[in-house]
Amino acid sequence: MEINDDYLDLKGHKFKSRFILGSGKYSIDLIKAAVENASAEIVTVALRRANQGGVDNIFDYIPKDVVLLPNTSGARNAEEAIRIAHLSRELSGSDFVKIEIMRDSKYLLPDNFETIKATEKLASEGFVVMPYMYPDLNVARDLRDAGAACIMPLAAPIGSNRGLETRAFIKILIDELDLPIIVDAGIGSPSQACQVMEMGASAVMANTAIATAGNVPAMAEAFAQAIKAGREAYLAGLGRIVKEGASASSPLTGYLRD
């Protein structure tokens, strides 16, 4: 595939950028610079009760051409996620939703079963459903059959910056599913983002790694470059690995000796 025709395709919505940026946990003033440096076309937001007295209007800080991806954080089951998705659609005016359903507050691991139920309902209502999930092949197939636009397996628990703890299982999803695999949660550094892209992931979503960096906009840019490099390496096709010994890169003849 030529790099110029290379798009992330979510139910027919095409994106040049393969970096989905979270907007949480950093100064709201930095969102615009982070989005620009990340070249992000999709940015996540969360739906909450409005604060009395009013807070900063997040719409003022996110560039207008960016697609808002509301998440269903706070939902403990499918029913709550569906309710949040409906409210979010009314507010964003777009059909994109990231399903996030958690019952566990220590590890914040997603509830795969409830996620399938919510995906089925919301996809049938025309949402572009992007489910956050624990990387399990059977669940991923169920999510695909339920109408998900992509699968968003976690690399490590949310906000941990621990990297590719589920690497082998994400690889199975990439190999077996004909649907974009967007690695979400736990990616802590650009090198890890690059690695999942080299493996064939379709995109990376990151928030905490950028939010907790020394320089937020600079880290957003570093991630963007790493994701781009990883994608290009994947498209180029990685060189083979020699399991034992070595393989000379220079001619084995013509040495200056007898």
């Binding site: 946990k25 996540t44 954080s73 964003s92 939010a211």
Partner: peptide
């Protein structure tokens, strides 16, 4: 009644 809005989130 719930009155909701978007906030920063990942």
């Amino acid at each position: 009644i719930e009155i909701v809005t978007f906030m920063q989130g990942g």
